[in-house]
Design a protein around this nucleic acid. Structure first.
Lengths: 338, 338
DNA sequence: GCAAATATGTAAAACGTTTTAGCTATTACA
DNA sequence: TGTAATAGCTAAAACGTTTTACATATTTGC
């Protein structure tokens, strides 16, 4: 348990000033005209004693922590963990570390977490914003801390975001079902008014309307898989005419699949099913499930790039960057027609 | 973009010393006999200006960052992300933040990450150790930094760990297959000599031997799902006598399922299948797949508790804590008998 | 031979806390 | 009245960096 060595120790042992050591360590030797000989001497010594600067002290002085705060809804959700993985890889390549948390889509928790991140002097934020977090995000922006939102965005806040084309994706999927002969297409979503869900609903509605069909929308107050499954089971009972369902999220679809499997295995074969968010399960399921796949790597890449750009520029550019990515349609089930 | 306020500003504005403010903020007012009146005055002021102490400065002074470094193999793996989620929840309740990374089971990357964590003065470590990381972990322990390993452990290192009873789980699963009439049970694993895999193999071998059967072991050099699927497809070709397979990890099983589905759908119905690590997919798969489910919350809870205990005690207790948890057998497939 | 330019380096402040050691005024006690 | 105890508060060092502003010696140009 040897004592940690500091820049001071180095300076003392070498009989030079800590300023010199600092300059050398920060690669400003040429600029500061430090002799090659001294540079070598210091570097060798640093190597020998395996000195590592304290990022704490450095951060205190410079005001930069090289840390990015990542706030997702649930890190154990495959969609978010895939994004987290990509963000992490990108960030590390650029010398940034990630500190993450799950909000559980709870506004109060998210608010607390943002406060914690602030106290820790996180340099930038990547946030999946829950409802009601608008002011907190605005406050971050106003105090010069860059924020990039992903998956959805807080309305009325001029923070960058990268999302997918929800309305078009939902429209295309619905139209696809209709084109394949389904006439009673339902939309199963969660009870959220956030834009990503609103847009999906809108896309569905427009497609239904364009084809002169009847819209059937079921909002699930998702708490647990079991509870959702029960609600959906009841829904299926009440709407026996349905021949297809578009699910707004992958976990809703999973609950739906469970509900159908539990009540009537035949239904799984005949029902037209499409889900938002791809999932390994959908590929292997019998029958396999067509899905709207989100480009997680692209989302992560755009988000981190936006953030790094903001972090690099000193002047606070006020123009908001809005990125809307296309989804890819994972057409699986050849049985996707009547 | 108002200036950040410091303890100094408070002291100045109130005409008192920063020492006093610090004592009050740290709840040491009574102990230090600060008058109630002054305490209130300071507290009110702090509230009013919404002062938040800089954790950086505090950490620099105290040497504690209240941060835990989490190093898993891959945060986007459902098993690890579930653990991460539980660890996160527990840590936050105790005032700790998590900073995480994925090693990809790459020793060099893990080594770098540990160095970064060190530089950042992470208080404690929770690590899924790759092979060859023994010295680095030992070095952490020797310098008084607590480390808890999960899922597996570096051999010959006296660091706490929490794992599952791999040998027994594999034995039980193998025996279960045999009890149900399967006679040619293979074990599909990855090409790793790490203890968790070695123990699974051992459990399988002992069960096979106890029943006087022949062991068939396939080691997959897992790189991608596709590549694993191809290798397994070849394996199935070469071993037509097989009637059951025990998979050492869930992703191997998924690759196996894909391989079987691609070549011969009938095989899926007749083959006895059990996989390590439960996965939502296994429940919904047709037929559903029996699995050995790891208690992720328990693993997380034990890990964080071990770590917090170490962090709390000042004396460096050298006794190593080894926790081995039981798995639960998710018996799914009623067809799990010939 | 002397001013200016250049080469090589350093002292000290600052970042925002915590904590040790101590100071002054009042009260208690005999 | 003199001394000890207590109540209430504070000065200053320390944590480990970065950075501004300057110091000293050497070389160059003429």
């Amino acid at each position: 348990m040897k004592k940690k060595i500091s820049i001071n120790d180095i300076a003392n042992q070498l009989g030079i000033s800590i300023t010199t050591v600092s300059f050398i360590l920060n690669g400003r030797a040429k600029e500061k005209r430090i002799s090659e000989a001294l540079v070598k001497k210091v570097m060798d010594f640093v190597q020998e004693v395996n000195y590592k600067p304290s990022s704490l002290a450095r951060s205190l002085r410079t005001g930069k922590t090289n840390t990015i705060g990542l706030l997702v809804e649930d890190i154990s959700d495959p969609f978010f963990s895939a994004i987290a993985r990509s963000i992490e890889a990108n960030a590390y390549q650029n010398g940034y570390k990630i500190i993450y948390s799950s909000t559980g889509n709870d506004t109060e928790k998210a608010r607390e977490l943002i406060m914690m991140y602030r106290e820790r002097h996180v340099d930038g934020y990547i946030i999946v914003p829950p409802e009601g977090i608008e002011d907190d995000i605005r406050s971050l922006i106003d105090s010069g801390r860059p924020v990039v939102q992903i998956d959805r965005y807080a309305t009325g806040v001029e923070a960058d975001y990268v999302v997918i084309d929800n309305e078009r994706s939902a429209y295309t999927a619905t139209q696809h079902l209709i084109d394949n002969g389904y006439k009673n297409v339902a939309f199963v979503t969660i009870d959220s008014k956030q834009p990503q869900m609103a847009d999906r609903l809108l896309g569905y509605q427009k497609a239904i309307q364009a084809n002169g069909l009847n819209a059937v929308v079921e909002e699930v107050a998702y708490e647990s898989s079991i509870q959702a499954m029960q609600q959906l089971s009841g829904f299926l009972d009440k709407q026996p005419q349905l021949d297809a369902i578009l699910f707004a999220t992958n976990y809703l679809c999973v609950s739906g699949l469970k509900a159908m499997a539990a009540r009537d295995h035949q239904m799984l074969q005949t029902m037209g099913i499409i889900s938002f968010d791809d999932y390994e399960l959908f590929e292997l399921h019998t029958p396999s499930i067509t899905s709207i796949s989100q480009p997680t790597e692209q989302i992560a890449e755009h988000a981190i790039n936006l953030l790094l750009t903001r972090l690099a520029q000193t002047d606070t550019d006020k123009t908001q960057h809005k990125i809307e990515l296309a989804t890819s349609f994972m057409l699986r089930r050849s049985s996707l027609s009547k």
